[in-house]
């Protein structure tokens, strides 16, 4: 029983580690069009890329501080929301990361 719990925990840790690396790419890809945090999270969740607010917002800030995103506060539906979109550098990096992802995916498919 405890061994199966250990295995589950081990798998869960590895799964999270695997997904963590992909999150930046997923977030960048969804910000080709402007979105605010909540709708971005919903869009990702609907496409099977679940991400909680505690992970998403710090990630958005990190990507913005690296110059890959721009953001602005705007009022929508009577509430202030912060809208994010890809910066020109972000577009470039997204292309490179997407190509890298394809390579990794191809290699892994071959290996697996």
């Amino acid at each position: 029983m405890s061994q199966s719990i250990d295995n589950h925990e081990r798998f869960e840790n590895l799964r999270l580690e695997l997904r963590r690396g992909c999150l930046s790419l997923a977030v960048l890809s969804q910000l080709k069009t402007e979105r605010y945090g909540y709708t971005l999270r919903k869009a990702l969740n609907e496409q099977g890329m679940e991400i909680d607010e505690g992970t998403l917002y710090p990630l958005l800030r990190r990507l913005e501080s690296h110059g890959l995103l721009t953001s602005e506060w705007r009022e929508e539906e009577k509430r202030n929301k912060r809208f994010y979109r890809l910066s020109p550098d972000g577009k470039q990096v997204l292309k490179q990361l997407a190509a890298e992802w394809q390579n990794i995916n191809k290699s892994l498919n071959g290996i697996l």
């Binding site: 945090g37 909540y38 917002y57 509430r79 912060r82």
Partner: peptide, 13 residues
């Protein structure tokens, strides 16, 4: 800034 954004997300939820 962080609290405004987090608050907005939680209120939307």
């Amino acid at each position: 800034d962080i609290i405004a954004e987090l608050s907005e997300d939680l209120r939307s939820q």
